[in-house]
Simulated scan of single mutants.
Amino acid sequence: MLADALGQDSYFNDKKILLLDKDPKNTNDRTWCFWEEGKGRFDGIVHKAWNDIYFGGQGFSEQFKISPYAYKLIRGLDFYRHYLQKVSTHTNIEFLQEEVLNVSENEGSVLVTTTEETYIGNQVFSSVFDFKTLKNQHKYPVLQQHFLGWVVKTKHPVFNADRPIFMDFSVEQKNNTRFMYVLPFSDTKALLEYTLFSEHLLPEASYEKAIKDYLNQKYGCVEYEILEKEKGSIPMTCYDFQVHNTKRIHYIGSAGGWTKPSTGYTFYNTSKKISDLITLIKENKSFASLRTKWRFRFYDLLLLDILYSDNGKGQYIFETLFKNRPPQLIFKFLDEETNLWEDLRIISGCPKKEFIKSLIRRLLPFFK
């Protein structure tokens, strides 16, 4: 996204830009989803969009209309093909498949060492994420949104193609925050992901067993073909990644703290940050404004504190919120576009005791 934005802006016509990735980006290795009002810039590569979502809990379940929002899905392969083709039309940008081994900075330049070569540049924007950064600090809780997904094709119609399952907490929680996420492409084809918000990963067989059990128990389906697999782990933390930025090295994407800490959503937020970043580069201004607004960062921190200390509370918190507030307001809040009154509506729709205790724990050190 950043390479294409740089290539489209005439301000950078006299700059040579190198895009490095160890992967050729020719497989469908991931899926991105986001909610959006009306038509958007990615509609040309959106594989599927829905106007309804289903939330499933243990005491409350509901199918919601989400207009004016639509929930949109982009396949990784479609994104790669589209953007690499666009990047290839910019004569000042070169894409090379090489693994980056090291990035070092001196007074006048940055050196990027790969498996093949060492390159010299003026600025580096790195999306290489390293979990060690988070493990070496104790100020902020660190969870992971980790998941394994299958795209399956069934012999008989079992899915509702118009109803994605946004979160289904009816699965056994096992003292964690666990849910199923189902994105149906048709009545016989869907992506199912077993997802956790927790500190530690599971053995791969545990995710797969959960998907098998869900297909059997939810849909009565034991005969199906697995067309694709994907897995991932997304950081959930309020840690300030921008402290690692230097004069010439800047971190972007999850490595720059662009992931929404409370949900793990990154794709759409990144698209907005890229636009702001281009403006800051051209105006030679600090990138500090790319940080999340302090109040939203604090809201996220309170939730992560709860889930870190009592990971089994997630189902109760999300179920209470979706029971008390419409998804449109929840989406607007998660997009960090609400005003203070709307923030208070969201907060009042959450469980009180857990968030008050979390707030006291965070404020207590200031009164000692």
Rank of each mutant, 00 (worst) to 15 (best):
M1P: 02
N13S: 14
I17K: 03
L19S: 10
K25L: 14
K25W: 13
W32S: 05
E36T: 07
G40I: 11
R41A: 14
D43P: 15
D43F: 03
D43K: 12
G44D: 15
K48Y: 12
Y54H: 15
G57W: 10
S61Q: 11
S61K: 13
I66S: 02
A70K: 11
R75K: 14
L77A: 09
D78P: 01
Y80A: 00
R81D: 06
K86N: 05
N92Y: 08
F95Q: 07
F95P: 05
F95K: 06
V103K: 09
N106K: 10
N106L: 02
S109R: 15
S109T: 07
V110F: 15
V112R: 09
V112T: 07
V112K: 06
T113L: 05
G121L: 09
N122F: 12
V124C: 11
V128S: 13
D130G: 07
F131A: 04
K132T: 07
K132R: 10
L134Y: 08
K139V: 11
K139A: 14
Q145R: 08
W150Q: 09
V158Q: 10
P164L: 06
P164S: 15
P164V: 14
D168T: 12
E172M: 13
Q173L: 11
K174S: 11
T177K: 10
P184M: 00
L192K: 02
Y194F: 12
F197Q: 08
S198Q: 04
S198E: 02
S198K: 01
A205G: 10
E208N: 08
A210H: 09
Y214N: 03
Y219V: 04
C221D: 09
E223W: 07
E225Y: 08
L227H: 02
E228Y: 02
E228V: 03
K231I: 05
S233C: 10
S233F: 06
T237D: 14
F241S: 15
F241Y: 15
Q242H: 15
Q242I: 13
K247D: 12
I249A: 04
S254A: 06
G256K: 07
G257T: 00
W258Q: 01
G264N: 06
Y265D: 11
Y265Q: 03
N269G: 13
S271C: 00
K272S: 06
K272L: 07
L280N: 02
K282V: 00
K282L: 04
A288H: 13
S289E: 13
L302P: 01
L304H: 02
L304I: 09
L304N: 03
L307Q: 00
L307W: 04
L307H: 01
D310M: 04
N311M: 09
G314Q: 07
G314V: 09
I317Q: 07
F318V: 03
E319V: 01
N324F: 05
P326C: 05
P326Y: 00
L329H: 03
F331K: 10
F333L: 04
E337P: 06
N339D: 15
E342W: 10
D343F: 09
L344R: 12
I346R: 05
I347D: 02
I347H: 05
S348E: 09
S348H: 06
K352D: 08
E354I: 13
I356Q: 13
K357A: 15
L363M: 14
F367I: 12
